[in-house]
Design a protein around this nucleic acid. Structure first.
Lengths: 219, 219
DNA sequence: GCGTTCCTGACAGCAAACTGAAAAAGACAC
DNA sequence: GTGTCTTTTTCAGTTTGCTGTCAGGAACGC
């Protein structure tokens, strides 16, 4: 299994790498977001191990960027504080699991195994929605009446958010956050446009408008 | 729910307070860090709404101080658009969530609900009413015989008030205040109309008329 | 019966949401 | 680099449906 470790604390990074190498995994290491981006461009990794507290800032943005570009590479985030907000932001940004430092190396192995099993594993969990639409969140694929529908990365980013919270109405602002960098506010009706496109591709029934509030997908 | 709002822009502060008061929350307001510290000493708040750009300096220090003293009071920080670093610092300092100004008041409510739910541990406080109607006050959703019913924002504003005070008869005047800004007199039968609309959506039994007094919902 | 209070269908005005199209920005091959 | 194709964003015209108002009628208390 090919693993990319993004971590700037050298002691920790070395310990993790030794442990994983000993377990027969292929580990590349980068100490910054910039390096990581370069390495990700060159190689297809099976798992991404991502520290959120990097010197050059936004580990989360790296993850968000990846997801926006359509990558489904499993990602486990490493966070220094036992901070619920970090964890939730991370999971929202597209992380699959998280570990709070300091962590046990055996637990890391266990999580890695779990995550990769979830992905390589046979039964991808399909979520069924109204209108004959099925969604494979892990595999980033959508079927309409059994036929595969291709979504662009933005379309997916938006739809993904909604499918992950079925029954809950999400405001346009919340949905914008799935589309753009933190705080990069946009002053047009982009969300409306993407909802419109998704409806054309998936049928009218899937996404419901709650006027004055936002949009909702039912499970 | 008892909320402390720390915000120096009076217009914003008033808007937030009105909105939350209308939603039945108890809101205290302070315009500076010093005041906030005093108020925090005197009262146990359920949520802290903290602007990071205060005149007397660092709202962040207030938060760090709280956390250092072992307080786990949930905190939502309010930041301007361009202060991404603030936001990250805030989350690191122990904030649970953030809102970018200008924000939608309904979204504020949603975040508040989410944060407090996260802490109280009850994910879905459903209230059951007569006529097979269930209400999720935090999630702003209503089920009738297990089927989701969509309410418009005005309909919800009114119904929310009644469900929060089950068994208590509310006058039309009281209910009007849930619908409009404080003091905005309205000289028509709007409340009656909305009660009628709610009954059509939820069934006749849910809202009872107390002639000459007002309306009541039973738990 | 009477007067009062409440209910509800209808409707116009308006803001929110939808959508087609075109411009702008990226992606990719060459 | 250039050209071509796809995706993203913006804009404007149209549609939708929420809202407040009213009027006629029903229900209630007397």
């Amino acid at each position: 299994m090919r693993i990319l470790l993004v971590e700037d604390e050298m002691m920790l990074a070395d310990a993790v790498r030794d442990h994983l190498l000993a377990a027969g995994e292929a580990v590349d290491h980068s100490a910054s977001v910039v390096d990581a981006e370069i390495m990700l461009r060159g190689t297809n990794y099976d798992v991404l191990l991502l520290d959120l507290n990097l010197p050059d800032g936004k580990g989360l943005d790296l993850l968000r960027d990846l997801r926006r570009k359509g990558s489904a590479t499993p990602c486990i985030i490493l966070t220094a504080q036992d901070q619920i907000s970090d964890r939730i932001e991370g999971l929202n940004a597209g992380a699959d699991d998280y570990l709070v430092k300091p962590f046990d190396l055996n637990e890391l192995s266990a999580r890695l195994a779990a995550v990769s099993r979830r992905y390589s594993g046979n039964p991808n969990p399909f979520v069924e929605l109204d209108g004959g639409v099925e969604v494979d969140l892990a595999g980033r694929s959508v079927l309409r009446d059994g036929v595969q529908v291709d979504l662009t990365s933005r379309e997916w980013a938006l739809f993904d958010q909604m499918v992950k919270r079925p029954g809950q109405t999400l405001s346009k602002r919340q949905l914008e956050e799935a589309l753009y960098e933190f705080g990069a506010e946009i002053e047009s009706n982009t969300v409306e446009v993407y909802v419109s496109r998704l409806r054309r591709k998936l049928g009218k029934e899937v996404i419901k408008t709650v006027r004055g509030v936002g949009y909702r997908v039912d499970g």
